[in-house]
Write a protein that binds this DNA or RNA. Structure first.
Length: 648
RNA sequence: GCGCCCGUAGCUCAGCCGGAUAGAGCGACUGGCUUCGAACCAGUAGGCCGGGGGUUCGAGUCCCUCCGGGCGCGCCA
């Protein structure tokens, strides 16, 4: 509704300015600095002042007196030296919300939006850095869907890369295990933890025995050829770890639609097709001299911002093998349906909620939906890979797919590092240098990091202590479920509260906190609203007929209270908050909104006893406001992927 | 060397397309539990928005420059 009035007002003013001043201005609306100034502020007179060479105050005065009426607006006021402040008709506004609580503004862009996230190497347990990626990606997906878009969630699996190969080397060459033995191990719990340690071991082994890298090359070769024990081990490891990752992410409510795998990209020769295309369109050329002699390269000028003498990027090595970026270009072409090839698919599994997840396959099995061929693609990848993402987009452009290039977005985010204090807690030895830093980078090779499942377990345990002390009478299983929701809410909120380009220095003490700006704070507020309604029913009461009791006049009476009005206004801005977060691509904005909303309600909750209210109209109003708040906060939390526990 | 990001309260961070007196959480200090359960609320202290130039009626926000920090820049993935 807020949104609606805002839009109506903007177009009314734009039309008036065109007619009366013969000028065009981009009408922007702002939130007034103080609530007492009204609901919206328009700096339009300042913009026009320059064009018209007239003082802003005079322009504002003309706008104020001449403007046609806009429904829902009761007054325009001039403030400062030319601000036009807008006051809403409170009774009208409140009533409109009773009639239509949720906005009908939703209309997504046409076509399918592809969001690729998670993309963890399937060779070891997921860590907190991966959590940031998956939570950001998943929340962005929920935001887009809330904005009415059709979204496909992809999670790319590099099951043939060096990282998988290294773990295979560990099993085969260091431990001398057969595929059958590894398969047995993979069936046991926490295989991903086992591989975490093994990967760190083999990485350090390479350091001491450089000649052992020969094993890696041999393994990579076997995996690519798809033959022999080493290839079989590769499949066993990668498949089992993918299962672990899916399970970890499901704990946070994160699901995928399709898992395209590198093994199928190789087998179905995606690269060969892309290579022909790149050559044909002259996006790459065969270098005949200099350091890149014998390689197929992309001109540096195609992607680099260094205008002096940008380095060319090798796409195909002089030995004929393709680089990572080359494969990525082929994959990105597929995402837009521009490669002229597709995967086959098989159903990997169905989630408990019934949602199916498909995985790429060499032969078709089952009737899969049409994957890929998106109108837009968002790649959720950390900012360290921005250079490579630029090359991929330049590749699309060079091939002539301007449109695809423009619709490719690197949804980047900064890394998650560890606070020095947390490193100490983890028993890691820090150098003098590290100790002074504000954060220390995680390293999979060194096994340095916080595993996702460990963190979730720790959060649940911490939450359970609180739940147990508050609700000792509740069944143990139920308490555990409540603690789980609190824990995952805390974790998701923690990862979302920072804007994307801020480095997170992960700190246990901070992440395990349930007070202040945290997920549980917001959940608690929703629980309180629910409690009011539940208590009402427990006492034999029923919800009043809001449509009958809360007439426009009644609303106007109740909303004379500044406290009620401000809360109502804040709640009614959910749509605006969602839209703003989608437009800015910043889930943190929505998280912040949820927090502020919770704050407003908590203060209201403290001040006013809803059920004890004796005046029937006022009581009905308070109940309606409480329920309206509850529904809008729950909707917002749902988009953040945060569930509300039954009690706290 | 080149490129990208960051620098705002003691700490961690917000600050929407440039707009009115720069905000929140934590920490510190004062108060508030007779249950719609305090995982909360009310209040106090705390800021040269890294420095310096510029553009503008107006700059935390845009431009230039310097300082400090992070991350990239391979015929690795």
């Amino acid at each position: 509704m807020f949104h609606h009035i805002e839009r109506e007002l903007r177009s009314a003013i734009a039309a008036y300015v065109r007619a009366e001043f013969d000028a065009s201005a981009i009408i922007t609306t702002e939130q007034p600095k103080q609530p007492s100034f009204g609901e919206l502020a328009l700096p339009v007179a300042f913009q026009l002042a320059r064009q018209l060479k007239r003082p802003p105050r005079a322009i504002a005065e003309q706008l104020r007196s001449g403007m046609p009426r806009v429904a829902g607006i009761s007054a325009l006021e001039i403030a400062g030296n030319g601000y036009l402040n807008v006051r809403f008709d409170r009774g009208w506004y409140g009533r409109a919300l009773v009639d239509q609580p949720a906005g009908a503004w939703i209309q997504g862009r046409p076509g399918k939006t592809i969001v690729e996230h998670t993309n963890i190497n399937p060779n070891k347990a997921a860590h907190i850095g991966h959590l940031r990626n998956a939570i950001l990606g998943d929340t962005f997906v929920r935001m887009l869907r809330a904005a009415g878009e059709t979204v496909e969630v992809q999670n790319y699996i590099d099951n043939t890369g060096v990282q998988v190969a290294d773990v295979v080397v560990g099993f085969h060459f260091l431990q001398k295990r057969t595929p059958a033995e590894v398969a047995a191990l993979a069936a046991e719990a926490r295989f991903d933890y086992y591989c975490w340690d093994l990967y760190a071991r083999i990485s350090s082994y390479y350091g001491d025995h450089p000649e052992a890298k020969q094993w890696r090359h041999q393994t990579l070769h076997s995996i690519e050829a798809g033959e022999g024990d080493l290839a079989e081990l590769g499949h066993i490891v990668a498949d089992a770890i993918v299962d672990c990752h899916l399970a970890t992410m499901l704990r946070l409510g994160i699901e995928y639609d399709v898992l395209p795998r590198e093994s199928e990209i190789l087998h179905l020769r995606f690269w060969a097709t892309a290579f022909e295309l790149l050559k044909e369109r002259q996006a790459i050329y065969l270098e005949t001299e200099g350091k890149n002699s014998g390689c197929w390269v992309m001109r540096g000028s195609a992607f680099s911002t260094d205008t002096e003498n940008p380095d060319d990027k090798v796409i195909v090595r002089s030995n004929g093998t393709v680089t990572y970026v080359g494969k990525d270009i082929a994959y990105q072409l597929w995402k837009f349906g521009l490669l002229g090839k597709d995967f086959h698919y098989r159903l990997l599994k169905s989630y408990p909620d019934g949602h199916p997840v498909w995985i790429s396959a060499i032969e078709a099995r089952g009737e899969a939906p049409r994957f890929g061929a998106g109108a837009r693609v968002y790649n959720v990848i950390d900012s360290r890979q921005s250079y490579l993402q630029d090359v991929v987009v330049a590749g699309l452009r060079a091939v002539g797919f301007q449109n695809a290039a423009e619709n490719s977005t690197h949804f980047s985010y900064e890394m998650v590092a560890l606070s020095p204090r947390t490193c100490v807690e983890l028993g890691l030895e820090l150098s003098e240098e590290d100790r002074k830093k504000s954060h220390v980078e995680v390293s999979g090779r060194k096994g340095l990091g916080v595993k996702a499942d460990d963190l979730i377990d720790k959060l649940i345990a911490t939450a359970l202590v609180e739940v147990d002390s508050r609700h000792p009478e509740a069944p143990a299983e139920e308490r555990r479920q409540v603690a789980t929701r609190i824990a995952t809410g805390a974790l998701r909120y923690f990862m979302l509260k920072f804007t994307r380009n801020s480095v997170i220095a992960f700190d246990f003490q901070e992440a395990l906190s349930f007070e202040g700006e945290t997920g549980p704070f917001v959940q608690y507020s929703a629980v309180r609203a629910r409690n009011i309604i539940r208590k009402l029913e427990e006492r034999g009461g029923v919800m009043p007929d809001f449509a009958a009791v809360l007439t426009e006049e009644a609303m106007a009476r109740q909303l004379r209270s500044e406290d009620f009005w401000q809360l109502l206004l804040a709640v009614s801005k959910a749509d605006s908050a969602i839209e703003r977060a989608v437009l800015s691509g910043e889930p943190a904005h929505l998280a912040k909104y949820a927090f502020q909303l919770a704050q407003s309600f908590n203060s209201f909750y403290h001040e006013y006893a809803v059920l004890a209210e004796e005046d029937p109209e006022r009581r009905a109003f308070l109940l309606w406001l409480t329920d309206y708040f509850r529904s809008q906060l729950e909707r917002t939390l749902g988009i953040l992927g945060i569930e509300v526990p039954e009690y706290m």
